[in-house]
Design a protein around this nucleic acid. Structure first.
Length: 882
DNA sequence: GCCCAGTTCC
């Protein structure tokens, strides 16, 4: 809860300020003292010093007025009450203070499976409304004609020429530009600019037209066009001003190109212009949208302050957006509070952005709490606030509550828009409610809510992930019929899902269309291609593509590397991949930044890969044993990530553990983990320690690591626990494996794992499931020994196993069958469900009472180094299990 | 005149 936020901030998750606590709130009573203190402390670190200067800016006068509207507070209260009622934390999942656990060193990126493509979007509703624009009535008439007769270039030209004598210069042309922008018609924007700039007299007005046009094109994500307008303006002598530069920086931001944005910023300064508040705001925003690290943003803040520019509401809003996208929760809390402290008005954007940051970090209760504070500030949670909450609950896997908020939005009479419908669609698509999906689409049509690329992308992804490829193809046709222009994400989705399905022809067609549409590949698309190659063909091709993308100037990210590591762990020994002359892996990866001179033929190369995939139709050959060579490869890739400053995350960790699980050499696996401790002792230290049998000494650190994993995506956390457990189980650390899996259960990583009558192993890896079977049977045994009766029917569900496509025919079922047979446990396959093992309570009770049963159920580690009289006592099995 | 919030993706 926000209200319980301590007056000083936890520093665990936020590296830049790791050892530099924020001043406490009550420090404001004596700011000078702390100012000096902090200056002294940060003398050798200008960045931190600046951050503190920022944090300790003079307390301002109390704000006499608030922004925001004064609409019905009743509606807000109702909304809040309804939402709060939905946010009941499960009391059986207490928070875990972890005793004396050391504070974590992990950055927010560790647990993040957050998007690594940060591109902003066009919000037609957020355009300058143009309502009060200074224009003549002729402008409206011209607009109508332009829309009707200006379908092609000549038509537009004619309309403009016709109206030219009556249009009143700058005001009217700006109006037209904005209206074309509102209709996402970038060509009209450009033509109108070209026309208008020749017809206004003063350089000043030409400059205005240019910056408005650059801004509009930027928001339409036509940064190339924005750049051309800028260059033209510069060349013709009306573009060398702060506003044009700021607009261009913003335009790069809207396309997620923060590196280009900073270049423009540099150029601007080099040409003698002094960046103003708006420039800095645009740059901070571009950083947020480009997903850069927080310390780069702090550098910009530093520079801003050094130039004597004080941050305003929009600066803070942009900073909060940086936090929301990057998961910098502590920073978000700090800046949100600091706005109050400095008397900077918080508006609905502030609240919504902050609420979004909380939601993205899984802090749903805090988000609700903040939302409930809005009415007191004369703000009503609006459509965006509610959509944010819906998405937040959906992301946390709490779709019931998400849908309930959505229903409340209907009840409150919000006019639902495309984005809120898109969010709703995604939820029903994930639930597999396809009839509901169809109904919602119809409702959108009936209510005249336009479907955008986001709608279709959600539909494509939703159908594709449920393996409904016909549905996907149908949606794509509908999208074309509705003349909604596919964007890069559309093609990424198509290529990714078709490739995963082995439908390479379709994937190749999508790729061709993408090229025809003139779109440029980005890191996400490259990563999707690399992933497809890893999963379906060869690590070797994937690595060439990795070289390729680097060469054309697209930097791989953690997701790209995770695919490679995962593939190395799985398929590295497929001999065919290397044509008999396999280079040593670390070197292979090393030359990644070399070879920049080769001709750019990436398109044809990608087509060639698709061709290979489509014609060969062979999966990678699998081999059970993994050796030193592959382990060295993974180490090499990890080092490369370190060099490139790509921070590994929990997915990387899981992939490495999975590789260890497939490695037959304990020594090699232990060596890998030990080497990796040099890069990240907390994460790999725990894995290595548990593997080596230093369980008791390790457990407190392990708990602290598990705490990090707490607020992860519903799919990421199980993958982590599965991987760690599998690795331990594989190397005979079975009691350790069991402790990990029970800790996962205690933290509700898997839903409803067990009851007295049923053990549900679905979504568990084979190691996790086997460790869990032992624990569950011991639990059942304790019931028998307490003299209580067992349920009549006992079931063990293996579901469909995590990676199996056929119901009940997964590796998991076979593993469990083998385990039960080995234990002599009297379970049989259910007749009507081949993924389910059943028995009766009485038969199982009899078996549990047999003398040898306990011995086979209790797990031991192969390697154990108990700490004599250790201070960190591990809870015993029963405590954990119950 | 230039700058800020919610959806779709590896």
């Amino acid at each position: 809860m926000a209200s319980s936020t301590p007056p000083h901030y936890s520093l665990t998750a936020w590296k830049p300020y790791q050892n530099h606590p924020y001043p406490q709130r009550n420090h404001r009573q004596n700011p000078n003292h702390h100012h000096q203190h902090n200056n002294r402390r940060h003398r050798n670190n200008p960045k931190l010093a600046a951050a503190h200067k920022f944090a300790l800016a003079k307390p301002p006068l109390p704000s006499p007025h608030n922004s925001g509207n004064a609409a019905s507070a009743t509606a807000a209260a109702a909304a809040t009450a309804a939402a709060t009622a939905n946010d009941t934390e499960d009391p059986t999942f207490p928070s875990l203070p972890a005793l004396n656990a050391p504070k974590s060193d992990l950055g927010p990126e560790f647990s993040g499976r957050r998007s690594t493509r940060f591109v902003s979007k066009m919000h037609p509703g957020r355009h300058k409304t143009n309502v009060g624009a200074r224009r003549t009535s002729v402008a409206d008439e011209a607009l109508q004609h332009a829309l009707r007769y200006g379908k092609d270039e000549r038509g537009l030209q004619n309309v403009l020429l016709t109206f030219e004598p009556k249009l009143c210069g700058f005001g009217d042309y700006t109006f037209l530009l904005r209206e074309f922008g509102n209709r996402s018609d970038h060509l009209k924007v450009v033509r109108c600019f070209e026309f208008a700039v020749r017809r206004v007299r003063r350089k000043n007005e030409q400059g205005k037209l240019a910056s408005v046009t650059i801004s509009i094109l930027g928001k339409l994500k036509k940064v190339g066009l924005a750049r051309s307008v800028f260059d033209t303006a510069l060349r013709e002598g009306y573009g060398n001003n702060v506003r044009a530069y700021s607009a261009l920086i913003s335009a790069y931001g809207h396309s997620g190109k923060s590196r280009e944005a900073i270049k423009v910023f540099q150029t601007m300064k080099n040409s003698g212009l002094k960046p103003n508040l708006v420039t800095f705001n645009a740059l901070i925003d571009a950083y947020g949208k480009g997903g850069v690290e927080l310390d780069k943003v702090l550098q910009i803040l530093d520079e801003m302050l050094k130039n004597g520019i004080q941050p305003d509401r929009i600066t803070y809003n942009s900073l909060l957006a940086v936090c929301s996208r990057g998961g910098y929760l502590e920073a978000a809390k700090h800046w949100f509070d600091e706005m109050v402290y400095k008397g900077i008005d918080q508006d609905d954007v502030t609240y919504n952005t902050y609420i979004d940051a909380l939601c993205k970090c899984g802090q749903l209760d805090s988000a609700i709490e903040i939302m409930s504070q809005m009415p007191a500030k004369n703000m009503v949670p609006n459509l965006v606030t509610h959509s944010t909450m819906v998405a937040g609950y959906a992301k946390a896997g709490r779709s019931d509550e998400a849908l309930s908020i959505f229903n409340n939005m209907r009840f409150l009479g919000f006019k639902l828009d495309t984005i809120s419908y898109n969010t709703l669609l995604k939820i029903h698509l994930e639930l597999g409610d396809f009839q509901e999906v169809v109904d919602i689409c119809k409702e959108m049509d009936d209510r005249g809510v336009p479907k955008d690329a986001g709608t279709y992308n959600a539909l494509l992804a939703g159908y594709g992930k449920q393996k409904k490829y016909d549905g996907m193809t149908r949606v794509y046709k509908e999208m074309n019929a509705a003349q909604v222009c596919p964007n890069l994400l559309t093609y990424t989705t198509l290529i990714d899902l078709y490739s995963k399905a082995g439908l390479y022809r379709e994937a190749m067609d999508a790729f061709k269309e993408l090229k025809q549409a003139g779109l440029e590949l980005d890191v996400v698309l490259y990563s999707a291609l690399i992933n497809a190659l890893c999963k379906n063909a060869s690590v070797d091709s994937a690595v060439s593509l990795l070289h390729e993308m680097t060469r054309v100037g697209i930097s791989p990210n953690v997701v790209t590397y995770n695919s490679i590591i995962d593939a190395l762990g799985r398929y590295m020994t497929a001999e065919a991949d290397f044509g008999g002359s396999r280079p040593s892996c670390p070197m292979f990866i090393e030359d990644l930044t070399e070879n920049k001179t080769a001709d750019a033929k990436e398109d044809s190369r990608i087509m060639k890969y698709f061709g290979q995939l489509a014609s060969e139709r062979v999966g990678p050959s699998k081999k059970d044993s993994r050796g030193r060579q592959e382990i060295l490869c993974i180490l090499g890739v990890f080092k490369k990530m370190h060099e490139l400053e790509i921070k590994p995350n929990v997915v990387t960790f899981s992939a490495i553990l999975n590789a260890c699980s497939r490695c037959n050499s304990f020594e090699d696996a232990a060596m890998l983990l030990e080497e990796l401790c040099m890069f990240d002792n907390q994460v790999y230290g725990v894995a290595h320690g548990l593997l080596m049998g230093y369980r008791e000494a390790m457990w407190v650190q392990a708990l602290s690591l598990f705490d990090e994993v707490r607020h992860m995506d519903p799919e990421t956390a199980p993958a982590f626990y599965n991987a760690l457990t599998d690795m331990l189980w594989h190397f005979g650390q079975r009691r350790g494996a069991q402790l990990v899996v029970l800790e996962g259960k205690r933290r509700r990583v898997w839903d409803n794992v067990w009851s007295d009558s049923c053990l549900d192993l679905h979504l568990m890896s084979s190691g996790a499931a086997r460790a869990m079977v032992h624990a569950w049977l011991l639990n059942i045994r304790s019931i028998v020994y307490e003299g209580r009766e067992l349920p009549k029917l006992l079931s063990i569900l293996t579901g469909w196993g995590k990676h199996s496509k056929v119901v009940g025919d997964g590796a998991l079922r076979r593993a469990i069958e083998g385990l039960l047979t080995g234990l002599g446990a009297p379970f049989q396959l259910a007749k009507c469900n081949i993924g389910r093992f059943v028995s009766t309570g009485s038969v199982v009770a009899t078996w549990l009472r047999e003398s040898g049963t306990l011995k086979v159920l209790v797990l031991e580690d192969d390697r154990s180094h108990p700490t004599s009289g250790g201070i960190h006592k591990i809870p015993d099995l029963q405590t954990l299990a119950l």
